[in-house]
């Protein structure tokens, strides 16, 4: 049985100073280097923050490592990881 599963990582980026693009770009740099498969991403403007949902697949250990790396990004306020069936993940990532 494959140990690859689908997850949604949700995180907030502090955007009050620069609009949040730099924080988002920095977060994407972190995701690029993670040993995961990227599916898609949604970003919603919430005033002082940008709310990001990231749908990815990978091993639990690597997903958790990615979440820890994202928490280190200075603009990132909070990171939540949810494991879910892939069909549900598609919906969750976009709501």
């Amino acid at each position: 049985m494959s140990d690859i599963e689908t997850y949604v990582i949700k995180f907030s980026i502090y955007a009050a100073i620069d609009g949040g693009l730099d924080g988002l770009a920095r977060a994407i740099h972190v995701v690029r280097k993670a040993p995961i498969q990227f599916h898609d991403m949604a970003v919603i403007d919430a005033g002082k923050t940008k709310e990001v949902s990231l749908r990815i697949s990978g091993k639990k250990k690597d997903i958790e490592w990615l979440a820890k790396k994202l928490e280190k990004v200075v603009e990132v306020l909070e990171v939540k990881v949810q494991k879910m069936p892939s069909e549900v993940a598609i919906i969750a990532a976009h709501t």
Partner: peptide
């Protein structure tokens, strides 16, 4: 340079 250095700095910022 902020973009260039994002993956190799702890933080980088443009004073806006």
């Amino acid at each position: 340079v902020v973009g260039v250095t994002m993956p190799i700095t702890k933080h980088s910022l443009l004073v806006r």
